[in-house]
Design a protein around this nucleic acid. Sequence first.
DNA 1: GGAAATAGGACTAAATTAGTCGTATTGATT
DNA 2: AATCAATACGACTAATTTAGTCCTATTTCC
Lengths: 120, 120
Amino acid sequence: MALQHLAKSGNATTREISAARQIPYDLLAKVMQSLKRDGIVDSYQGAHGGYAMLISPGSVNLSRVMNALDEDTNLAECMSTGISHEQCSMYENCTIKDPLNKLQMRMEESVGKMTIAELL
Amino acid sequence: MALQHLAKSGNATTREISAARQIPYDLLAKVMQSLKRDGIVDSYQGAHGGYAMLISPGSVNLSRVMNALDEDTNLAECMSTGISHEQCSMYENCTIKDPLNKLQMRMEESVGKMTIAELL
DNA sequence: GGAAATAGGACTAAATTAGTCGTATTGATT
DNA sequence: AATCAATACGACTAATTTAGTCCTATTTCC
């Protein structure tokens, strides 16, 4: 909702979006910071500051937004990069690992096909 | 994992699957009951009882399995059928309702394309 | 200097999901 | 008839995750 608002209005403050969309201010603030961190939006501090899209809405797909907001968007823990193999004792002889990976790729693809531009 | 096991072995008891896949017995029992309720598997009570596939693995897609196990698989509460309109005060002037519905349909489609047969 | 904004860490509360427990029922075997 | 091994199921508890809050910096315009 925040990105839809931003894409429509060009730029806005957290306070404005919070009021317009009835989103708790503090929560939205966290969301905006995450979007900034990912480089989806740009921020301007100080008085008369706020946020603006850094990338064209059509170039921001929902898969990217998901990953910007959540640190782990995998279907299972073992699918994260890194030390995850040790986390599951069944990792070596797991028989659903491959199909699960395939499923995740397909889902990411379908989520990735929708962009912020399609929310306007 | 349970369905993969069942599809491979033809039939099995909860105890067998639990041991083979290291799934907590009580939890798996609940899962099997849900699958039975949905009509994906058939159950046989009493001694020498157990479960067997009721439908061919190729006809059981993961979307159906999801819905069999979870009572609500919607992206948002307002997308459930029934009284949900009253649950969200913003329902009438929600501006992401339509794209969200479209997204859910696309995701369901991609999940629905994979069947238990593809786990074998 | 003050007001209005972002930045971010630490925390709490709510909701969800995973897992357990107790008991009933069914049905083949002895 | 008794027993044992299985499903059925409701109620509960524990763990995890997610939503939301609070406090304090920092930045920048006026």
